[in-house]
Design a binder for these strands. Structure first.
Length: 237
DNA sequence: AACCAGGACGTGA
DNA sequence: TCACGTCATGGT
């Protein structure tokens, strides 16, 4: 993948390059029952490129929220295993999570890491979710909830509730600072503002762009090797 | 065998 | 505000 690193390049142009190269990502992935034998506990996580009708129901809505918490600083595959375990135990549900023994939740979500903290976060969120009674949570409401920071709040609003809320993350900061568009020290909110001001305010675009940045970031901006001119090397050839 | 992953919180300056 | 330690499993 060769990104145009010209500083005149607009953020939207970067989005189009990534989209053309990687195609639709179909975020947020959703856990579904599967018939294969190699999937964990009869469930597996699937992306849905080409379909923007997710979440399809309130179960998936809650599942996306839970996944956003479980994947905090964690590889998605590990978070997905935790979700699959919860689904197999039939507790991937707000009411059941509120009533579940925390020790059992801990054991189910162990693969996602940080299981002591995340089990608490899940129970806190489940209670908050029930209190919403179907309403779309505001960003501030989410931020006021213990365990939910800016990225998780924006992920929940963008992917579980289809709100036009740009999500930025470590990959976004690495990529845009590497391309010289922002400072590597930029704060979450400033980075989000930069993206919003340079992109059309479109929910589907936000959903794809963040997913594309993660796909691209996993390849080129993982670890600390992005300090080396990975893409420039490609361009200079 | 280190190093990292789709962060957030608690603490002390 | 802000830098820093902590949380923890699984894949490479």
């Amino acid at each position: 993948m060769r990104l145009d690193t010209n500083k005149e390049t607009s953020l939207y142009a970067i989005y189009r390059q990534l989209y053309e190269h990687y195609g639709e990502q179909g975020w947020w992935p959703v856990i579904e029952k599967c018939s294969d034998k190699d999937c964990v506990e009869g469930w597996e996580s699937k992306y849905h490129p080409g379909c923007y009708k997710y979440p399809r129901n309130r179960r998936e809505e809650f599942q996306i929220c839970a996944g956003a918490i479980l994947t905090q600083n964690t590889a998605w595959d590990n978070a997905a295993k935790a979700l699959e375990n919860l689904a197999a135990a039939e507790v991937l549900d707000a009411e059941k999570l509120v009533n579940a023994e925390e020790i059992s939740v801990r054991n189910l979500i162990k693969p996602s890491g940080y299981y002591n903290i995340k089990s608490r976060k899940l129970k806190v969120f489940a209670k908050f979710y029930l209190a919403l009674a179907g309403e779309v949570p505001t960003r501030q409401q989410l931020l006021n909830t213990w365990g939910i920071g800016p990225e998780t709040a924006d992920s929940i609003r963008l992917y579980a509730y289809n709100q036009p809320e740009m999500v930025v993350d470590a990959y976004t900061r690495r990529m845009l600072s590497f391309l010289g568009l922002v400072s590597s020290e930029i704060s979450y909110n400033e980075l989000k503002d930069y993206c919003c001001k340079n992109l059309p305010a479109d929910t589907c675009l936000y959903q794809e762009f963040h997913a594309l940045i993660v796909a691209h970031g996993k390849r080129y901006y993982t670890g600390k090797q992005y300090y080396e001119p990975v893409i420039c090397r490609a361009n200079s050839k």
